[in-house]
Structure formats: C-alpha cells, structure tokens
C-alpha cells in the first residue's frame, strides 16, 4: 500500500489509477450506472446523442441490434474486470505454487516444472488460446482455464527466480534450521519478499489478459452472446465501421484505456518500489 501511495504521487500513475478505477467502478455499479438494459433491442444504428424512444439519450449511440452502446460498455467492464481478475488470480495461484516449489526444492522438482513451463511457453500464446477455446468451447470458465494455462508458466519463471534468490538468504536458512515446515517457509518467509515485482507484473498481466479477453471476443471465441464484451463489440461493428464508426471507436477506447491505465499504474508501482528500495 505504501508503494501504491508513493506511485500515486506521480501524475502519470494517478491518471492510470483513475482509468482503472473508473472501469472497476463501472463493473461494480453497472446496474445503477447503465442507462438501459444492455441486452434490450431498441432502435438500431442510432448515432451518439440521438434521442431514445423513452425520451432519454443514446449517449454513444446504438448497435446493429438497437442496443445502447454505453450500457453495453458499462456492463462489458464487468465482463472484463471480473473474468480478467479471476483468470489472473488463477494463473497466479498456479504460477506462484509452481515457482515456489521449484525455487525452494530445486533438483528434480525444478527440472520437471521448468521443462513443463518451457514447453508451454514455446507455443505462440494466441494459438494456444484459440486451441484451448475451440476445443473446450467458449465460456467464462474456459477463458480462465486458457489464460491460466498460457500465463502461469511466465509467472512461474518470475517466482522461481525470486525464490531461488530469497531461499539462499540467511533468514530462510535460519527457518530451515529451526525446523519450520516447507510450506510455511515458502508462504511466510519467501513469498512476502517476492511481492514487489509480482504486483508490478500483475498490473501488466491484468492488462494483457483484458486484451486477451477482447481478442478472443473479436475472434468470436469470447463469452457466448449476448454477453456484453468489448472485443465482441468491435468484431460486431467492424464491417460497418466505415459508415458507423461509433460501433467500434468506443469499445476500442474502452479496451485501450483499461490497458493504458494498468500500464501506467504498473510503471508507477515499479518506480515506487525502486525508490522504496533505495530509501
């Protein structure tokens, strides 16, 4: 938290935080913020600021099926924030567990886990996502599985490297000498000392996962329709983008702003961690 406080003193990081916070707020309070039901068809292809039949305004226009784009973006934030959060958590649980074991035990455990991680990392990530989703079918749970499978090895590598370094320090040797069990050493002595780089990585990774969810939606492999999904919205509108640019511009802005926000926040946290370390 101290690092976050330090990071927010930097204007760029504060802007990043605000961008992320905006979408998190949208996700949490979507039913109160969205002017319309995101699934309800009203008047197709209305331009931004056009009047709705009930006297309201379609602030960002409507899509081909007459659904309010603003409402779909707000509910879409829920899709991205929730599934990106769940997927990232799942990937971290797997990656951290593997990385701690490999870094602490070394030997055959390390060799086997590193080999498996390298095998997965040798595949192009997007191909891996597509393969998994096409095989298992498009659903939120399968997106979590795909992201976990593809992202956990990279997290594993970071945690493994950090664990090897931390495990060689005196306080860990002392804990071993005292007879503490391995799980306690890994979770209480090693993991807390590795959180700094992991928090920075998590910010960036959340952004990548948000992009991944958008990409899968764009490729038609996202959440099943009619779930509001930013990538899916871009895909739906791209054929008509020349005539109705609002169909793709707003979802693209949403994806970019979340990604940019997370990147700025990650940069700020990295700088704040370095500053903290020097202090």
């Amino acid at each position: 938290m101290r690092a976050l406080g330090r990071a927010l003193r930097r204007p760029a990081s504060a802007i990043g935080f605000a961008m992320v916070a905006l979408w998190v707020v949208c996700a949490i309070f979507a039913p109160w913020l969205a002017p319309y039901d995101p699934l309800k068809s009203q008047v197709p292809l209305q331009m931004p600021f056009e009047r709705a039949p009930d006297g309201g305004v379609f602030w960002l226009g409507t899509d081909l099926l007459g659904r309010d784009i603003l409402s779909r973006l707000i509910y879409g934030a829920r899709t991205v924030v929730f599934w990106a959060g769940v997927a990232a958590s799942s990937a971290y649980i797997v990656g951290i567990t593997g990385g701690l074991c490999a870094g602490f035990y070394r030997g055959i455990t390390d060799r086997v886990l590193s080999f498996l991680a390298n095998v997965v990392l040798s595949f192009p990530v997007l191909v891996l996502y597509i393969l998994i989703i096409v095989t298992l079918g498009a659903s939120g749970l399968n997106i979590v599985l795909a992201v976990t499978f593809a992202s956990a090895p990279a997290i594993f590598r970071i945690v493994r490297a950090l664990s090897i370094d931390i495990a060689s320090r005196d306080f860990v040797s002392a804990a071993i000498t005292q007879g503490e069990n391995a799980a306690r050493i890994m979770l209480v002595d090693i993991l807390p000392n590795a959180t700094g780089p992991l928090v920075v990585d998590a910010c960036l990774r959340l952004g990548y996962i948000a992009i991944t969810i958008g990409t899968l939606g764009f490729l038609g492999l996202g959440l099943p329709p009619p779930t509001p999904d930013w990538g899916g919205m871009v895909n739906e509108g791209r054929g008509m983008a020349m005539v109705f640019p609002h169909l793709v511009v707003f979802p693209c802005i949403a994806i970019s702003s979340l990604m940019l926000g997370l990147s700025l926040l990650a940069d700020g946290l990295r700088e704040a961690s370095r500053a903290g370390a020097k202090a």
Partner: peptide, 17 residues
C-alpha cells in the same frame, strides 16, 4: 454456425430476448 454471416446469430439474439 453463422454459416452465411453474423445475421444468423443476430436473429438468434433477438429470439433469445
């Protein structure tokens, strides 16, 4: 399967509602 285009899915979405 959207064999002819996305309008197949769009129609199904309306029916879904």
């Amino acid at each position: 399967g959207n064999t002819q285009g996305r309008w197949e899915q769009d129609t199904a979405v309306i029916m879904q509602q």
